[in-house]
Each structure stands twice: as C-alpha cells, then as structure tokens.
C-alpha cells in the first residue's frame, strides 16, 4: 500500500465509517432490553472492528475476528440465550435503578477522561521511539516476505512457542471444565 493512500479521503471516510459504526452499535448493544437484540448489535461491533483491522494492515486478525468472535463465540452466546429461553418479561427489566445508572455514567466518564489523557498525541510520540517508528514505516513500505501471515507465524512459533503450547493446555482445561459444569448431576446427594 502506498504511504499517501493512508491519508486519502476514501481511506479516512472508511476509517471513520467503521469507527462510528462500532461506537453506535456498542451503545445500542448496552441499551437493548432483549438479549438477542443485544447480541446482534455486538456482532455488528465485531464486524466493524474486523473492517478496522483490515485498514490497520492486520488482515489475518480480521479473518480471525470474523471466524472466532462473530462466527464461534457469538453463536455460542446466542445458543445459550435461546437454550435458556431468556427474554420473557421477568428478565427484561434488568437494568439498575436511577442512582446506579448515574454512578455507572460517572465511572465511565472518569475512565474515559483518564484513558483520553493518556491518549493525547504527545504521549503517543513519547512512548514510541523515533527509530522504531522509522523502522516500522520502512517495513510497511517494503513488501512482506511471508505474505500477511508470515510476520505473525514467525514469532508465534519461535519466541512465543511455550505460550502457544500452554494455550492448548488452557483450551483443554476449558473444554473439560465446560463439560463438567454443564453436565446434569444425577448422583448429587
């Protein structure tokens, strides 16, 4: 991708389109009463984030986002919502009272102010060394050696091989845990 393409109007438009879609869908997600509608808005957030990943040159991550998050995790959520038959009137009034909402809004604004203060551009420039930024710009200009996946696969299977193997143990533990927790106990007391 040419460097000047990053600043073109169409690129900016698409970036803000995906970003604003993500924010609007996230707000719709936390305000919906019905769990199924909330899950659908969350799927929309995840698709918008997948679009942003493509724009940030992380095409493999965008694929994984669609496959794993919207394709697997959210389907499991919807499956459980429908299995438990949620959404009948007693479950719908599930928000906290007025004071709880005001408290949550206050906490949210305080957190947002804190993170935004960290997020100012001069802070970003300070945490990113200039030589690293130059090297990244140079690497972005040259075509990748192993395609899109190569730069991710190399550290995953070399530097972080132990963590990768431990992840498989984590998944095995999660599978066993889910089966044990979900099993109907016939011999319990």
């Amino acid at each position: 991708m040419q460097p000047n393409q990053f600043h073109s109007l169409a690129f900016s438009f698409a970036f803000y389109f995906f970003g604003l879609t993500a924010i609007a869908s996230a707000i719709a997600f936390v305000t919906r009463k019905s769990p199924v509608a909330a899950a659908m808005w969350l799927v929309n957030v995840m698709f918008a984030l997948a679009g942003l990943y493509v724009m940030l040159d992380a095409q493999f991550m965008a694929t994984m986002q669609v496959l794993v998050y919207t394709g697997a995790i959210m389907v499991v959520f919807l499956f459980v919502i429908m299995l438990l038959n949620l959404g009948h009137p007693s479950e719908i009034a599930d928000s906290r009272g007025k004071w709880g909402k005001i408290f949550a809004l206050f906490i949210g604004l305080a957190m947002l102010a804190e993170v935004m203060a960290l997020n100012r551009s001069n802070t970003i420039d300070r945490i990113i060394p200039a030589d690293l930024a130059a090297k990244a710009a140079e690497a972005a200009a040259t075509p990748l050696a192993g395609g899109v996946i190569g730069p991710i696969a190399a550290p995953l299977f070399k530097e972080y091989l132990l963590a990768f193997e431990l992840t498989s143990v984590l998944l095995l533990a999660a599978i066993v845990g889910a089966v044990v927790l979900g099993k109907r106990r016939t011999d319990a007391r």
């Binding site: 924010i23 996230a26 769990p35 949620l86 906290r96 909402k101 408290f103 906490i107 947002l112 997020n119």
Partner: peptide, 23 residues
C-alpha cells in the same frame, strides 16, 4: 486508540448497569 478507549468504557458502563448475567 481513542476508539478503543470509548469501546472499553462502553463495556465497563454495561457491566455496571446491566443485571442480566449473559449481557
């Protein structure tokens, strides 16, 4: 990064306001 901060904050507010475990 700003978008990420906004999404994270919306998630925190959701955890604090909702009462449905799945949400």
């Amino acid at each position: 990064l700003a978008l990420s901060a906004v999404l994270f904050t919306i998630g925190v507010v959701g955890v604090l306001t909702r009462r449905n475990a799945i949400i």
